[in-house]
């Protein structure tokens, strides 16, 4: 089971190409980083892998088959702003259980406390919300995880806490992870290898 992006290119309408000929291969259990200056389409590329967007050219395959159009997506993504990724009119327990029922072990690993479950999203801090988004994305059928500036808004301690939880689960389940971050030190700490997005054009 591997995630493979082949000659992927994207642009809006007839506008200029945001990027073209992007080739990325992600093996199970592998943690890969992407660097590159902002505004070059790293986020859009992540959205394509997660199925939020379709590539204008090129293909994305999981295990040799194209990404499914419906049903649970094997590539899940966690975004930078958790407050946008949670329905403001849902209590947290509903947010958490949207895809599946995470077990107690996972919640403990991520430091999610029972009393948070009865709160509204706006009553939690960004760091607390982001833990929910991570838990939600780690369903049993998630094969690959895309972390697009996932901990950029969080303090160092919460960042380390969330990453440790993800790493241990990734190891246990042989899950592949793609990390986008501006922080080179975090990248060095986490990734097996790093791809420079500038190489593609």
């Amino acid at each position: 089971m591997q995630l493979e992006a082949k000659d992927v290119g994207f642009r809006y309408g007839d506008g200029p190409w945001l990027f073209q000929r992007v080739n990325v291969m992600l093996e199970p259990g592998e943690i890969v980083g992407i660097t590159g200056p902002s505004g070059r389409g790293k986020t859009t590329f992540c959205r394509i892998l997660a199925g939020f967007e379709s590539p204008v050219e090129g293909t994305v395959h999981v295990n040799g088959a194209p990404l499914p159009k419906s049903g649970y997506h094997p590539v899940q993504m966690v975004l930078q702003h958790p407050e946008k990724a949670t329905n403001p009119r849902w209590k947290m327990h509903k947010v958490l259980n949207e895809g599946y029922q995470p077990d107690k072990e996972l919640l403990d690993l991520l430091g999610i406390e029972q009393e948070w479950l009865t709160r509204w999203p706006h009553e939690l801090s960004g760091g607390e919300l982001q833990r929910f988004c991570v838990a939600r994305a780690l369903g049993p059928n998630t094969r690959f995880l895309i972390a697009d500036e996932m901990t950029t808004m969080l303090d160092a301690n919460t960042q380390a806490q969330i990453w440790h939880a993800i790493m241990s689960i990734a190891k246990q389940r042989e899950m592949g992870i793609l990390v986008v971050t501006h922080e080179s030190k975090l990248m060095q700490r986490l990734c097996h290898r790093v791809i420079d997005f500038n190489e593609f054009d």
């Binding site: 160092a156 301690n157 919460t158 380390a160 990453w163 030190k185 060095q188 700490r189």
Partner: peptide, 8 residues
């Protein structure tokens, strides 16, 4: 911090 011990 990632450049230090990265433990929480």
């Amino acid at each position: 911090l990632p450049q230090n011990e990265f433990i929480s």
